[in-house]
C-alpha cells in the first residue's frame, strides 16, 4: 500500500505532465513575414503575411512577446487587434533595411524598404493571452 505522500507526489507529476502536454499541444507554429515600403517620406505599401507552418520548424524560442487575447484562436485576428504592439515587436526583432536614393539634376527621390524575412514563430494560445516567440 502506498503512503499518502507517495500518492501526492504521483498526482503532482501526473498533473504537471498533463499541463505541459496540453500547453505543448496548444503551441502552434506560424510563418510570418513583414515588409513595408516608404517612398519619398510617405508610406507606400505595407504587407504582413501570416501563415500556419506546414512542416515543423527548427530552433529554440527567443525573445518572447505576450499578446493580449480575448478568446481568439486565430493569430491573424489576434495580431490585427494588437497590430501596433506586434509591429513594434517585429521592429525590435530586427528588420532588413534597403534604401535606394536617386538624385537627378538636383531632384531627389528615394525608396526605403524594411523587411522581416519569413520567420517561424511559436505561438502558445491561452485564455487571456498568447505568447509568441521566433524560433532561431
Amino acid at each position: 500500500m502506498r503512503s499518502r505522500d507517495g500518492n501526492l507526489n504521483f498526482s503532482l507529476r501526473l498533473c504537471s505532465i498533463v499541463i505541459f502536454s496540453s500547453l505543448a499541444l496548444c503551441a502552434d507554429e506560424y510563418l510570418i513575414s513583414y515588409k513595408y515600403i516608404v517612398k519619398d517620406a510617405t508610406l507606400y505599401n505595407e504587407n504582413l503575411f501570416i501563415s500556419k507552418a506546414m512542416t515543423k520548424c527548427q530552433g529554440n524560442p527567443q525573445e518572447e512577446f505576450i499578446l493580449q487575447n480575448s478568446g481568439e484562436d486565430s493569430l491573424k485576428k489576434l495580431i490585427s487587434k494588437n497590430s501596433e504592439e506586434f509591429i513594434e515587436y517585429i521592429h525590435k526583432l530586427g528588420l532588413n533595411v534597403s534604401h535606394d536614393e536617386k538624385t537627378t539634376n538636383l531632384q531627389n527621390s528615394y525608396t526605403t524598404v524594411l523587411t522581416l524575412k519569413t520567420t517561424c514563430f511559436k505561438v502558445d494560445f491561452n485564455d487571456n493571452f498568447a505568447i509568441i516567440a521566433p524560433l532561431k
Partner: peptide
C-alpha cells in the same frame, strides 16, 4: 546634360 547621384544602403537593424 544630366547629373545623377545614386546612394544605396543595405543593413540589418535590430533593438532600436
Amino acid at each position: 546634360q544630366r547629373s545623377t547621384i545614386r546612394t544605396y544602403v543595405q543593413a540589418m537593424v535590430k533593438n532600436a
